[in-house]
Design a protein around this nucleic acid. Structure first.
Length: 568
RNA sequence: CGGAGCGUAGCGCAGUCUGGUAGCGCGUUUGCUUCGGGAGCAAAAGGCCGUGGGUUCAAAUCCCACCGCUCCGACCA
């Protein structure tokens, strides 16, 4: 390919709306253009990388026993109503009506669609297991699209779905997919780490997320160096050894005017937030519950929901808080008098808490010298807060560290959640109808593209891994008007094409500096310089993008192709 | 959804406070000189100053509404 024949538009300046390096480079290197908030056009370079990532995904999925299909992105509402997700998806789903006023959705995912499909196909155990996937545009009406392709309203995802005869077979499929994902990301040149995560809306069973570790990542991941435990902080478990000494003093009321938050009360009293008990009123499936956590920590609603065995937990509104506590937000506590009798649960960090400060259930008052065992009726203790740096690992007792990651993939065990809703059954050997057990597996294809850039760039631009680079090699023809130089460049191109190398010749009439800057910015893995000066001096120059200038090799034209292939 | 900021040439920005001929850098076009790390000189093209309304002799500038974009937050008591 000749540079002047394709469309490569690089930018000198960073676009003003880009925040993180990979987003800036996406725009500057001419990979993408923004169409509107959260919507992007892939330019030829981006398209090439995207297709390479897709191809890697295809090869690994196929090798793992899955078959590619393509389902509509436009989905009828009936499918979503069957599982209750038409309502549950809320504002995240793009909805529209067709001319007959039928409700439709622009698919954010396709569990319903694929399950409906398979329900009509599967009849016998002989057909199972089945594993299908598609690479398709997905739509999510994100509240806040951000960071380019990382969080956009329209994105490309590989979504795969497996149907097995039972949980054991599904488990086997799950780990097959897990290993396929490890290979996919490795082949994309991405350092992606599997971490345990919460099932969220998708089901309550086991799931791993694959995270590309990067400071710009939107998720926080808890790692234990001791045992290798890795989990999203929404899931990560900790143990706690409370360090409260017994304070045997009577409870005392303190006037704390105009102090609503823990920070404000703590500042008012000249104390640290950890001296407080934060008491929150939640609605768990409509039932009010008081949740107490150390004053300097945040409730993990996922853990809370699980502990309570509830379908949903939401923070109570102000009116309900007053109904329960008798006081307004800011003065709520677990110690009586409470206006209403509620179940009180507490974080394990409060076990044996003594000498602490709680809301008095009386506006603008707190209580000090509170001993939870003595003064409150806690129904149970559990790990209910979001882990943070320095917490103690629940598996091995070592310290947890927190790092940030970009979620590029996820594998789920779905169980029978969807097959039950659609009655996806097969007949077993005894002709008994049995529900299929499902799994689902997603790769954020466009997000992976950006994650690669986020993990692999320097001050001059992108450093593409060879496997997903738009072109593996750029031949810089420094003197396109000199016939001999152009001949060498073009012949080298032809030779590389013969050897199966993806190559582009920069044949622009530009000054060398401009061409070098662009080559570095776009980040072709190998750069070959062909110029009149170099040819006179004995050959062409070969340099890898990730090498320093001092590593440049001068090789005779005859050996160039071999040297380039070696450099890849 | 709440708060803040922004919207002027393809890109990055100044000008807005204090109303009076729409500017700068990059990019683009042409010419000459340059030519191994984003060249120099000269000339040129390119703007409904986000949209609509209002105030005024006069609006990029002041007022109102709307649209779009970006950031922060979204109830942790």
């Amino acid at each position: 390919m000749k540079w002047t024949k394709t469309l490569i538009q690089t930018l000198r300046d960073n676009p003003q709306d880009a925040e993180i390096d990979s987003h800036k480079l996406l725009m500057r290197a001419g990979i993408c253009r923004k169409t509107a908030a959260g919507l992007f056009t892939f330019m030829p370079l981006g398209m090439r990388s995207l297709k390479k990532i897709e191809q890697i995904v295809r090869e690994e999925m196929d090798a793992a026993g899955a078959s590619e299909i393509l389902m509509p992105a436009l989905q009828p509402s009936e499918l979503w109503r069957k599982t209750g997700r038409w309502d549950a998806m809320g504002a995240n789903m793009f909805r529209l009506k067709d001319r007959a006023e039928r409700d439709m959705a622009m698919g954010p995912t396709a569990e319903e669609e694929v399950t409906d499909l398979m329900t009509n196909i599967i009849s016998s155990y002989r057909q199972l297991p089945l594993n299908v996937y598609q690479i398709q545009t997905k739509f999510r009406d994100e509240t806040r699209p951000r960071f380019g392709l990382m969080r956009s309203k329209e994105f490309i995802m590989k979504d795969g779905y497996s149907f097995d005869v039972d949980a054991e077979a599904a488990d086997k499929t799950y780990w097959t997919m897990y290993r396929a994902y490890e290979r996919i990301f490795a082949r994309c040149g991405l350092k992606a780490t599997p971490v345990q995560a919460d099932g969220g809306d998708m089901g309550d069973s086991m799931t791993h997320e694959f995270h590309a570790l990067a400071d710009a990542g939107e998720d926080a991941i808890a790692f234990c160096d001791g045992c290798g435990y890795a989990a999203n902080t929404e899931k990560a478990e900790r143990v706690c050894n409370p360090v409260f000494g017994k304070v045997d003093a009577p409870v005392e009321e303190v006037h704390t005017p105009n102090a609503k938050t823990i920070d404000q009360v703590a500042a008012f009293m000249g104390l640290d937030g950890s001296a407080f008990v934060k008491s929150l009123v939640y609605l768990a499936d409509g039932e009010p519950v008081m949740v107490c956590v150390p004053g300097d920590r945040d409730v993990n609603e996922v853990k809370l929901r699980r502990y309570l065995g509830a379908k949903s937990v939401t923070l109570a509104d102000y009116a309900l808080v007053r109904d329960v506590s008798g006081a307004g937000v800011g003065s709520v506590g677990p110690v009586k008098p409470l206006k209403a009798d509620v179940r009180i649960v507490a974080d394990i960090g409060l076990k044996g808490a003594s000498g602490c400060i709680v809301g008095a259930n009386k506006d603008d008052y707190h209580l000090k010298n509170v001993d939870l065992d003595r003064d409150a009726k806690i129904a149970g203790y559990a790990d209910l807060v979001i882990v943070r740096e320095g917490d103690v690992c629940a598996k091995c007792g070592k310290k947890i560290t927190i790092r940030r990651g970009i979620e590029v993939g996820q594998v789920f065990k779905l169980g029978t959640k969807y097959t039950k809703a659609f009655n996806t059954v097969y007949k077993d050997e005894n002709a008994a109808e049995t529900l299929c057990v499902m799994g689902c597996y997603g790769v954020g294809v466009s997000r992976t593209l950006q994650a690669v850039i986020e993990q692999s760039h320097d001050k001059d631009g992108i450093i593409w891994p060879s496997s997903v680079a738009p072109y593996q090699v750029v031949i810089e023809n420094l003197d396109p008007s000199v016939e001999e130089v152009t001949k060498v460049a073009d012949e080298l191109e032809a030779e590389l094409v013969r050897r199966g190398v993806d190559v582009i010749v920069d044949d622009r009439e530009e000054r060398p500096g401009v061409k070098f800057k662009d080559a570095d910015l776009i980040g072709f893995p190998v750069r070959v310089v062909v110029g009149a000066k170099g040819l006179a001096g004995g050959g062409v120059e070969v340099k890898r993008r990730d090498e320093d200038k001092s590593k440049t090799r001068i090789v005779p034209v005859a050996d160039a192709a071999a040297e380039i292939v070696r450099s890849l």
